[in-house]
Amino acid sequence: MTFDSNAFLIIFTGSLIAISCGFLGVFMMLRKMSMTGDAISHAVLPGIVIGYFVSGSQRSLEVIIGAGLLGILATLMIDWLRKKARVQLDASIGITFTLLFAIGIILINLLAYKVDLDQECVLYGEIAYLPIDSWITKSGLNLGPRITWLAGLNFFFVIGFIYLLFKELVLTSFDENFSSVMGIPSKGVNLALMSIVSYTTVSSFESVGAILVVALLVVPPATAFLWTKSLIPLLKLTAAIGISISVLGYYLAYWIDSSIAGMMVTVAGAFFGISVLIHGKKPAWFRGTSPANQPFGV
């Protein structure tokens, strides 16, 4: 088989997106906020529309800023509903994202004569067109596929964010009160995480779409968590799953001639299902990391 540069680019980009989403998803899962990612991915729609309206381009910085702001707003709203209005978490999420999504749809219709925003694209995205969408500078230099650049930049930010704030992320996920007591700003850390989740969602829209990005946030971490109970292996396994679903997703989609992003998520779902089945009858040698219990006294 010869080297297929298109296939490589698509798989590479898919892996970058899957790993970015997966890493963030691990922390969302540990905070029991996986579905907040779902809320955010829908709630950013009005931000995108407004950003688009302001800048006139679907690919502008304004769109990303608008989406980021809306993501933070959604987080604050969910938090407020839960803590101050004492609404259950699932209900707060449901109220927030449907409301913001609805506002987004109304905005699209209101601004329809000025905004030629492709709703299909926002919702579904398609990574297969990536090789024909190059980033060409004003002087005509072809720098390669734009979406790969976006995904790479995003990946870089996510890794940097997690690297810098690793101990804060872990601590605030495990014991929020304790971190506040020590003066580590748990609210700030939370908002920072939600902003980068918003940014990641938006940046991944064009390639995988708003709905499938949620799957990438939730499914790989949940699958990895079935196999390991410590954090670093959890992150590594999530990354490995991200790469595997990109490779398998691409070739399966190619084989049956279907959506690559859709196939990636289907493969992720299959991984999860298989993990659940195997996990039930995992042999003892696979499970144990801990030495035998020893009696002890102080």
């Binding site: 101990k167 804060e168 872990v170 971190s179 954090l231």
Partner: peptide
């Protein structure tokens, strides 16, 4: 307590402040 952390990880959290 299902959080993926070791005993040492949790005790180290005391030093973060």
């Amino acid at each position: 307590w299902n959080f993926p952390a070791s005993v040492l990880d949790v005790v180290m959290m005391g030093t973060y402040g």
